[in-house]
Design a protein around this nucleic acid. Structure first.
Lengths: 224, 224
DNA sequence: AATGCACTGGAACGGCGTTCCAGCGCCTCC
DNA sequence: GGAGGCGCTGGAACGCCGTTCCAGTGCATT
């Protein structure tokens, strides 16, 4: 035990599930969704691909664990006196900011069946929906609507992040898309053309919370 | 030209973009999201993988084309006298039913950047949002909220379809998930536990349209 | 008959997730 | 203190994928 404490590692630091997940997150953040590879991960950890499988069952579990770690960090605070509407907004924005900083969790959450990271978010929303005074029979619907909206935004956000190269700025990207919308066939895409300007000027975060507010209005209108 | 009409094909039917897309849709429907492979596709078309690339640039384009074909079919009708709320519900349900019949388009739509199939849906929603009398400045937000909600549901639906084997019935699947929710830690997942029953008994389609109505209520409340 | 060309399909390439297994160092037991 | 077991490692190998390459095929034109 003493010798173990003094020189416990075969390498500087032994492999472990946490170290692997952490490395996977860094890889996903820096190299993008396609950058997570067992070989790249093994290189970064100075080992071989086979060693990773001793700690993690496969790629799905690795992605779920990475998503769970990031989501758990994002779902921290609940100042306990916050009104439910505000708490929902804060919670949703927490998830949004996490998905903005790590677009790959948008893909992962949208793809995942009812797994741990998703359940955390659902639970957080549901508690506040309850606090909002929504009748029990409508709580599932209300929480699901909010969750699905968030997942939809996350998926789109990830798709956009995948679409444009990191060296092109967000403004350039929006300009490009907005211009392509403005050039659509006026007969077939009249509406889309008419909001091309709003697309160029909009603020993702504000737009996101506006959608949340829309749903909250719908929920509370039903309540009373 | 006459000879071309009489015996136009080297095989019974020549390869073409449409035939390839159609075969891809069948493959995705029968073998699932992972079943679409250039080799499997080539087998089904009695050719080699290389030949397909003469007609289609790559897998992304193939998936987009397949999604576009299915979505276009689902977005057909607009009886022209329908009130906007009803029209939005009908449109959303059209997309929902398509995603239910072909879960892979849920994944594809949720993953896609602003591509042709997605734009079709956005345009359809936006037109009805306009007809609803939503002020111009709020139209983008309203249409986006509806679209993102639909995309979220589609992604979850696809995830569930991926999750359970086709031989287990939907009721069994819901029972399993509901039971696992009921067994969660009471401290950490109080809300989720409390709605486990609603999960077991709910009707996906009705739940989906309830969410749409929630958002519609929010949209029209703002309007007047 | 010869040439050109749209189109075909099988072989091959590089990379992926995953599996296999010989080997390493530590801990335990005789 | 030597032997053996075991947790863990990491490199080689397998099968499948998307994609590319290219020699070949048959039709239309010359």
């Amino acid at each position: 035990m003493a010798s173990r404490a003094r020189r416990p590692e075969r390498r500087e630091e032994p492999l472990s599930r946490e170290r692997i997940v952490e490395a996977a997150i860094e890889l996903l953040d820096t190299a993008g969704e396609g950058g997570l590879t067992f070989r790249a991960l093994a290189d970064r950890l100075a080992t071989g691909p086979g060693a990773i499988y001793w700690h993690i069952a496969g790629k799905d579990e690795l992605l779920t664990a990475a998503t769970d770690a990031v989501v758990a960090r994002a779902l921290a605070p609940d100042p306990a006196g916050t009104p439910p509407q505000e708490a929902i907004r804060a919670l949703a924005l927490g998830v949004f900011d996490a998905m903005d900083a790590h677009p790959w969790i948008g893909t992962q959450l949208a793809r995942a069946p009812a797994q741990s990271p998703l359940l955390r978010v659902f639970e957080g929303i549901g508690c506040q929906v309850q606090a909002l005074g929504v009748p029990h029979a409508a709580q599932f619907t209300a929480a699901s609507a909010l969750l699905n909206y968030i997942l939809g935004v996350g998926g789109q956000n990830a798709a956009n992040a995948r679409g444009h190269r990191p060296d092109t700025s967000r403004a350039e990207f929006l300009d490009t898309v907005s211009a392509s919308w403005a050039n659509l066939d006026p007969d077939e895409f009249a509406f889309t053309r008419s909001v091309a300007g709003q697309l160029r000027d909009h603020d993702d975060r504000a737009e996101f919370v506006a959608g949340i507010d829309l749903i909250l209005t719908g929920i509370t209108a039903h309540t009373g």
